[in-house]
Protein backbone atom coordinates (compact mmCIF):
# COMPACT_ATOMS: atom_id res chain seq x y z
CA UNK A 1 0.00 0.00 0.00
CA UNK A 2 2.89 2.25 0.88
CA UNK A 3 4.44 1.70 -2.56
CA UNK A 4 1.14 2.53 -4.27
CA UNK A 5 0.81 5.77 -2.34
CA UNK A 6 4.43 6.76 -3.03
CA UNK A 7 4.01 5.98 -6.74
CA UNK A 8 0.81 8.00 -6.86
CA UNK A 9 2.39 11.01 -5.13
CA UNK A 10 5.51 11.05 -7.28
CA UNK A 11 3.51 10.52 -10.49
CA UNK A 12 1.15 13.36 -9.53
CA UNK A 13 4.10 15.65 -8.86
CA UNK A 14 5.71 14.62 -12.16
CA UNK A 15 2.45 15.24 -14.04
CA UNK A 16 2.13 18.70 -12.53
CA UNK A 17 5.70 19.61 -13.42
CA UNK A 18 5.30 18.34 -16.98
CA UNK A 19 2.05 20.24 -17.43
CA UNK A 20 3.09 23.52 -15.94
CA UNK A 21 6.83 24.08 -15.95
CA UNK A 22 7.10 24.92 -19.66
CA UNK A 23 6.17 28.49 -18.87
CA UNK A 24 5.69 31.14 -16.17
CA UNK A 25 2.90 30.43 -13.64
CA UNK A 26 0.83 33.46 -14.73
CA UNK A 27 0.99 32.35 -18.36
CA UNK A 28 0.00 28.84 -17.36
CA UNK A 29 -3.04 30.20 -15.51
CA UNK A 30 -4.11 32.24 -18.55
CA UNK A 31 -3.53 29.22 -20.77
CA UNK A 32 -5.69 27.09 -18.49
CA UNK A 33 -8.54 29.61 -18.59
CA UNK A 34 -8.57 30.67 -22.24
CA UNK A 35 -9.40 27.25 -23.71
CA UNK A 36 -12.56 26.57 -21.68
CA UNK A 37 -13.74 30.16 -21.87
CA UNK A 38 -13.36 30.09 -25.66
CA UNK A 39 -15.32 26.82 -25.82
CA UNK A 40 -18.03 28.47 -23.73
CA UNK A 41 -18.10 31.48 -25.99
CA UNK A 42 -18.78 29.25 -28.98
CA UNK A 43 -22.04 28.25 -27.29
CA UNK A 44 -22.82 31.82 -26.27
CA UNK A 45 -22.44 33.02 -29.87
CA UNK A 46 -24.50 30.10 -31.16
CA UNK A 47 -27.31 31.11 -28.82
CA UNK A 48 -27.03 34.84 -29.59
CA UNK A 49 -27.26 34.22 -33.34
CA UNK A 50 -30.08 31.73 -33.06
CA UNK A 51 -32.08 34.00 -30.75
CA UNK A 52 -31.51 36.99 -33.04
CA UNK A 53 -32.33 35.18 -36.28
CA UNK A 54 -35.33 33.35 -34.83
CA UNK A 55 -36.44 36.33 -32.71
CA UNK A 56 -37.02 34.27 -29.56
CA UNK A 57 -35.33 33.43 -26.25
CA UNK A 58 -34.90 30.14 -24.38
CA UNK A 59 -33.12 31.05 -21.13
CA UNK A 60 -33.49 27.72 -19.27
CA UNK A 61 -32.12 25.79 -22.27
CA UNK A 62 -29.15 28.13 -22.40
CA UNK A 63 -28.51 27.66 -18.66
CA UNK A 64 -28.76 23.88 -19.18
CA UNK A 65 -26.19 24.06 -21.96
CA UNK A 66 -23.89 26.41 -20.08
CA UNK A 67 -23.64 24.34 -16.89
CA UNK A 68 -23.32 21.10 -18.86
CA UNK A 69 -20.52 22.59 -20.90
CA UNK A 70 -18.72 23.81 -17.77
CA UNK A 71 -18.75 20.33 -16.22
CA UNK A 72 -17.72 18.81 -19.51
CA UNK A 73 -14.31 20.45 -19.02
CA UNK A 74 -13.67 17.67 -16.49
CA UNK A 75 -14.44 15.03 -19.11
CA UNK A 76 -12.07 16.25 -21.80
CA UNK A 77 -9.15 16.95 -19.49
CA UNK A 78 -9.50 13.88 -17.25
CA UNK A 79 -9.79 11.51 -20.19
CA UNK A 80 -6.87 13.16 -21.98
CA UNK A 81 -4.90 13.20 -18.72
CA UNK A 82 -5.16 9.44 -18.44
CA UNK A 83 -4.91 8.11 -21.94
CA UNK A 84 -2.12 10.41 -23.14
CA UNK A 85 0.31 9.15 -20.48
CA UNK A 86 1.31 5.94 -22.23
CA UNK A 87 1.71 7.55 -25.63
CA UNK A 88 3.62 10.60 -24.39
CA UNK A 89 6.03 8.48 -22.35
CA UNK A 90 6.40 5.99 -25.18
CA UNK A 91 6.59 8.18 -28.28
CA UNK A 92 7.54 11.62 -27.11
CA UNK A 93 9.81 11.27 -24.12
CA UNK A 94 10.66 7.65 -24.90
CA UNK A 95 10.98 6.92 -21.19
CA UNK A 96 8.32 4.25 -20.94
CA UNK A 97 10.81 1.36 -20.89
CA UNK A 98 12.55 2.77 -17.80
CA UNK A 99 9.30 3.46 -15.94
CA UNK A 100 7.84 0.15 -17.02
CA UNK A 101 10.71 -1.94 -15.63
CA UNK A 102 10.78 -0.05 -12.32
CA UNK A 103 9.16 -1.85 -9.34
CA UNK A 104 5.91 0.17 -9.28
CA UNK A 105 2.30 -0.33 -10.34
CA UNK A 106 2.01 1.14 -13.82
CA UNK A 107 -1.75 1.53 -13.30
CA UNK A 108 -1.20 3.70 -10.21
CA UNK A 109 1.47 5.67 -12.08
CA UNK A 110 -1.02 6.54 -14.86
CA UNK A 111 -3.63 7.46 -12.24
CA UNK A 112 -1.18 9.78 -10.49
CA UNK A 113 -0.14 11.47 -13.72
CA UNK A 114 -3.79 12.37 -14.43
CA UNK A 115 -4.37 14.13 -11.11
CA UNK A 116 -2.70 17.40 -12.07
CA UNK A 117 -4.99 17.69 -15.08
CA UNK A 118 -8.04 17.23 -12.86
CA UNK A 119 -6.86 20.04 -10.58
CA UNK A 120 -6.39 22.38 -13.53
CA UNK A 121 -9.80 21.34 -14.89
CA UNK A 122 -11.45 22.08 -11.52
CA UNK A 123 -9.99 25.57 -11.66
CA UNK A 124 -11.32 26.08 -15.20
CA UNK A 125 -14.79 24.80 -14.22
CA UNK A 126 -15.00 27.25 -11.33
CA UNK A 127 -13.87 30.13 -13.56
CA UNK A 128 -16.40 29.20 -16.26
CA UNK A 129 -19.30 28.94 -13.81
CA UNK A 130 -18.31 32.21 -12.11
CA UNK A 131 -18.07 33.88 -15.52
CA UNK A 132 -21.58 32.74 -16.40
CA UNK A 133 -23.05 33.84 -13.10
CA UNK A 134 -21.21 37.13 -12.65
CA UNK A 135 -20.11 38.48 -16.04
CA UNK A 136 -22.44 37.09 -18.69
CA UNK A 137 -25.64 39.05 -19.37
CA UNK A 138 -28.29 37.76 -19.00
CA UNK A 139 -26.58 35.84 -16.20
CA UNK A 140 -26.77 32.09 -15.81
CA UNK A 141 -28.78 31.46 -12.65
CA UNK A 142 -26.44 29.32 -10.56
CA UNK A 143 -26.65 28.71 -6.82
CA UNK A 144 -25.71 25.89 -4.46
CA UNK A 145 -27.75 25.79 -1.21
CA UNK A 146 -25.77 24.62 1.83
CA UNK A 147 -28.04 21.58 2.25
CA UNK A 148 -27.12 20.37 -1.23
CA UNK A 149 -23.36 20.59 -0.70
CA UNK A 150 -22.82 16.99 0.58
CA UNK A 151 -24.74 15.48 -2.36
CA UNK A 152 -22.88 17.75 -4.78
CA UNK A 153 -19.47 16.77 -3.35
CA UNK A 154 -20.36 13.06 -3.39
CA UNK A 155 -21.59 13.31 -6.99
CA UNK A 156 -18.44 15.17 -8.01
CA UNK A 157 -16.17 12.59 -6.38
CA UNK A 158 -18.03 9.65 -7.93
CA UNK A 159 -18.23 11.34 -11.33
CA UNK A 160 -14.49 12.01 -11.37
CA UNK A 161 -13.67 8.49 -10.18
CA UNK A 162 -15.82 7.08 -12.94
CA UNK A 163 -14.10 9.34 -15.48
CA UNK A 164 -10.67 8.22 -14.30
CA UNK A 165 -11.70 4.60 -14.66
CA UNK A 166 -12.98 5.21 -18.20
CA UNK A 167 -9.76 7.09 -19.00
CA UNK A 168 -7.55 4.25 -17.81
CA UNK A 169 -9.64 1.76 -19.77
CA UNK A 170 -8.87 3.81 -22.88
CA UNK A 171 -5.26 4.15 -21.75
CA UNK A 172 -5.03 0.35 -21.75
CA UNK A 173 -6.09 0.38 -25.39
CA UNK A 174 -3.41 2.93 -26.34
CA UNK A 175 -0.74 0.34 -25.54
CA UNK A 176 -1.58 -1.09 -28.97
CA UNK A 177 -2.20 2.09 -30.94
CA UNK A 178 -0.03 4.38 -33.05
CA UNK A 179 0.30 7.99 -31.91
CA UNK A 180 -3.29 9.09 -32.18
CA UNK A 181 -3.64 10.65 -28.74
CA UNK A 182 -4.85 13.92 -30.20
CA UNK A 183 -7.47 12.27 -32.35
CA UNK A 184 -8.52 10.14 -29.41
CA UNK A 185 -8.68 13.20 -27.16
CA UNK A 186 -10.98 14.86 -29.62
CA UNK A 187 -13.03 11.83 -30.53
CA UNK A 188 -13.87 9.96 -27.35
CA UNK A 189 -15.23 12.93 -25.43
CA UNK A 190 -17.33 13.50 -28.55
CA UNK A 191 -19.25 10.35 -27.68
CA UNK A 192 -20.09 11.72 -24.26
CA UNK A 193 -20.76 15.15 -25.71
CA UNK A 194 -23.53 13.74 -27.88
CA UNK A 195 -25.04 10.98 -25.77
CA UNK A 196 -24.83 12.25 -22.17
CA UNK A 197 -27.16 15.24 -22.44
CA UNK A 198 -24.30 17.67 -21.91
CA UNK A 199 -25.47 20.46 -24.16
CA UNK A 200 -29.05 19.51 -24.98
CA UNK A 201 -31.71 17.41 -23.26
CA UNK A 202 -31.69 13.71 -24.07
CA UNK A 203 -35.18 14.03 -25.54
CA UNK A 204 -33.68 15.74 -28.61
CA UNK A 205 -31.97 12.49 -29.60
CA UNK A 206 -33.79 9.75 -31.54
CA UNK A 207 -35.34 7.15 -29.18
CA UNK A 208 -32.69 4.43 -29.47
CA UNK A 209 -29.89 6.94 -28.95
CA UNK A 210 -31.57 8.13 -25.76
CA UNK A 211 -31.09 4.55 -24.51
CA UNK A 212 -27.35 4.84 -25.21
CA UNK A 213 -27.27 8.03 -23.17
CA UNK A 214 -29.08 6.43 -20.26
CA UNK A 215 -26.52 3.59 -20.20
CA UNK A 216 -23.59 5.99 -19.70
CA UNK A 217 -23.04 6.96 -16.05
CA UNK A 218 -21.83 10.45 -16.90
CA UNK A 219 -25.38 11.31 -18.05
CA UNK A 220 -26.54 10.96 -14.44
CA UNK A 221 -23.63 13.00 -13.13
CA UNK A 222 -24.47 15.91 -15.45
CA UNK A 223 -28.15 15.63 -14.58
CA UNK A 224 -27.53 15.67 -10.83
CA UNK A 225 -25.02 18.53 -11.01
CA UNK A 226 -27.49 20.64 -12.96
CA UNK A 227 -30.34 19.82 -10.59
CA UNK A 228 -28.24 21.01 -7.66
CA UNK A 229 -26.89 24.16 -9.33
CA UNK A 230 -29.72 25.56 -11.47
CA UNK A 231 -32.68 27.54 -10.16
CA UNK A 232 -36.06 25.95 -9.52
CA UNK A 233 -37.56 28.07 -12.33
CA UNK A 234 -35.12 26.51 -14.79
CA UNK A 235 -35.80 23.07 -13.32
CA UNK A 236 -39.52 23.41 -13.92
CA UNK A 237 -38.94 24.00 -17.65
CA UNK A 238 -36.17 21.42 -18.04
CA UNK A 239 -37.53 18.47 -16.02
CA UNK A 240 -39.94 17.21 -18.73
CA UNK A 241 -37.20 17.48 -21.38
CA UNK A 242 -34.35 15.56 -19.72
CA UNK A 243 -36.19 12.24 -19.48
CA UNK A 244 -34.56 11.59 -16.09
CA UNK A 245 -37.12 13.46 -13.97
CA UNK A 246 -38.41 10.20 -12.48
CA UNK A 247 -35.18 9.52 -10.57
CA UNK A 248 -34.52 11.09 -7.17
CA UNK A 249 -31.14 12.66 -6.34
CA UNK A 250 -30.18 9.73 -4.13
CA UNK A 251 -31.14 7.17 -6.78
CA UNK A 252 -28.87 8.95 -9.25
CA UNK A 253 -26.08 8.98 -6.65
CA UNK A 254 -26.60 5.21 -6.28
CA UNK A 255 -26.29 4.74 -10.06
CA UNK A 256 -23.05 6.68 -10.01
CA UNK A 257 -21.60 4.61 -7.15
CA UNK A 258 -22.47 1.35 -8.90
CA UNK A 259 -21.06 2.58 -12.23
CA UNK A 260 -17.82 3.62 -10.56
CA UNK A 261 -17.29 0.09 -9.23
CA UNK A 262 -18.10 -1.48 -12.61
CA UNK A 263 -15.81 0.84 -14.56
CA UNK A 264 -13.01 0.42 -12.03
CA UNK A 265 -13.13 -3.35 -12.55
CA UNK A 266 -13.29 -2.84 -16.33
CA UNK A 267 -10.30 -0.48 -16.27
CA UNK A 268 -8.22 -3.05 -14.38
CA UNK A 269 -9.12 -5.78 -16.87
CA UNK A 270 -8.60 -3.75 -20.05
CA UNK A 271 -5.37 -2.21 -18.78
CA UNK A 272 -3.91 -5.62 -17.95
CA UNK A 273 -5.07 -7.07 -21.28
CA UNK A 274 -3.65 -4.16 -23.29
CA UNK A 275 -0.37 -4.45 -21.42
CA UNK A 276 -0.21 -8.20 -22.01
CA UNK A 277 -0.96 -7.93 -25.74
CA UNK A 278 1.52 -5.07 -26.19
CA UNK A 279 4.27 -7.07 -24.48
CA UNK A 280 3.43 -10.09 -26.59
CA UNK A 281 3.58 -8.05 -29.80
CA UNK A 282 6.71 -6.14 -28.70
CA UNK A 283 4.86 -2.82 -28.77
CA UNK A 284 5.49 -1.56 -25.25
CA UNK A 285 8.13 0.96 -26.42
CA UNK A 286 7.30 1.31 -30.10
CA UNK A 287 7.48 4.68 -31.90
CA UNK A 288 5.23 5.54 -34.83
CA UNK A 289 6.47 8.77 -36.34
CA UNK A 290 5.11 9.27 -39.82
Amino acid sequence: MNTYWRTFKVAAWLGWEMDSNWTEPWLFIIYSIIKPIAATFILVLMYIILAAVGNFSAGPLFDFMYVGNAFFIFVGTTLFGTFQVIQSDREWYQTIRYIYISPISFYVYVLGRAISKILVAAFAVVITLAFGALVLRPAVEISLPLASVPVFVAALALGLFCLLAIGITLGGMTFLMARHTQSLAEAVPGIFYVFCGVLFPLSVLPGWLQGVGRAIPLTYWFELSRRLLLSSADQAVLAPLTGLGGFSDLTILGFLALSSVVFFALSLGVFKLGEYLARKAGKIDMTTSY
Partner: peptide, 18 residues
Protein backbone atom coordinates in the same frame (compact mmCIF):
# COMPACT_ATOMS: atom_id res chain seq x y z
CA UNK B 1 -13.20 9.77 -39.80
CA UNK B 2 -15.94 8.34 -37.62
CA UNK B 3 -15.45 9.69 -34.11
CA UNK B 4 -15.03 13.40 -34.97
CA UNK B 5 -18.51 13.25 -36.47
CA UNK B 6 -19.85 12.90 -32.96
CA UNK B 7 -18.48 16.29 -31.93
CA UNK B 8 -20.17 17.82 -34.94
CA UNK B 9 -23.40 15.99 -34.13
CA UNK B 10 -23.40 17.59 -30.67
CA UNK B 11 -23.47 21.07 -32.18
CA UNK B 12 -26.15 20.01 -34.66
CA UNK B 13 -28.33 18.74 -31.79
CA UNK B 14 -27.91 22.04 -29.93
CA UNK B 15 -29.45 23.85 -32.87
CA UNK B 16 -32.09 21.11 -33.05
CA UNK B 17 -32.94 21.60 -29.36
CA UNK B 18 -33.38 25.33 -29.79
Amino acid sequence: VFLPLLGIAAYVFIYQAF
